[in-house]
Design a protein around this nucleic acid. Sequence first.
DNA 1: ATATATAAGACCTTATATATCCTCTTGACG
DNA 2: CGTCAAGAGGATATATAAGGTCTTATATAT
Lengths: 141, 141
Amino acid sequence: MRLTRAGEYAVRCVLYLCGKPPGELVKRRAVSEEMDVPFEFMGKIAQDLAKRGILEIVQGSRGGFRLLRSPEEISLLDVVEAVMGDIPLNDCVVRPDSCRRSTTCTVHQVWKDARTQLRRTLKEATFAKMIREGTCLNDAH
Amino acid sequence: MRLTRAGEYAVRCVLYLCGKPPGELVKRRAVSEEMDVPFEFMGKIAQDLAKRGILEIVQGSRGGFRLLRSPEEISLLDVVEAVMGDIPLNDCVVRPDSCRRSTTCTVHQVWKDARTQLRRTLKEATFAKMIREGTCLNDAH
DNA sequence: ATATATAAGACCTTATATATCCTCTTGACG
DNA sequence: CGTCAAGAGGATATATAAGGTCTTATATAT
């Protein structure tokens, strides 16, 4: 029940892009080196972020990544779920078939509530807000 | 970021014991069969629960498991953390050394808040409350 | 065309979760 | 005491997921 490395890397990537002028194209190599993310792995993660419309990938020479949304419009939840898939917490919540009485079972209701709460907290945390209040970016990581 | 099988099994075990008269000694075999938990694995899980003082393990012939607390005094958090360890969500929260500026970084602050919130929700969910409001136990699982 | 950059999937490695096995210890009971 | 039932606890498999790398293909500027 923890953030994966891919999740952490994705956050770092978006954080880095948010620190650049809006619409600027940034090389994968630059993100990888600055944010200490394995180069190849960065490619995978960028694809996940692109699928969710968080950034755009430009091919060809002079290619790279470009944010498609403003930091106000990107939440921690968006980024984390882009690479980790839906946050389930408990199986029954996402696949109700796995438990016959999931709709009435209060154990599962607790998990469901916890999940809703967690997702709300992460949804409310936009990158604009986080950067405004200070992030690791300020220091060399 | 999900409940492990061991966590689910632990919950089932405690749920089952809560359904018995207080202080009753229940055989591992019974818990295992009734709650559909692998017999050997049940032993491991019981040890974790015993370490946290949730139940007592009695050896010898006529041995078995016995709840040490009333359902009012056992929360979902107790049981889940007994088998899964502390819920971290994000590494930096539990091991601040892994990030230099964890005390001031708002990304980590969000994770920390989310974690606190999740733990509170699970802490408030006592087995007494959950059973009162209906659980899967009522049905054959 | 060529150089540079990413795409996409195959593949490998490591870590964790899940489960089982075996030997030892405990305690009831004859 | 000896024996049996039951769990303890370490060692060891097996399965699944995470983490990372490699290769071939594709796109674009020059």
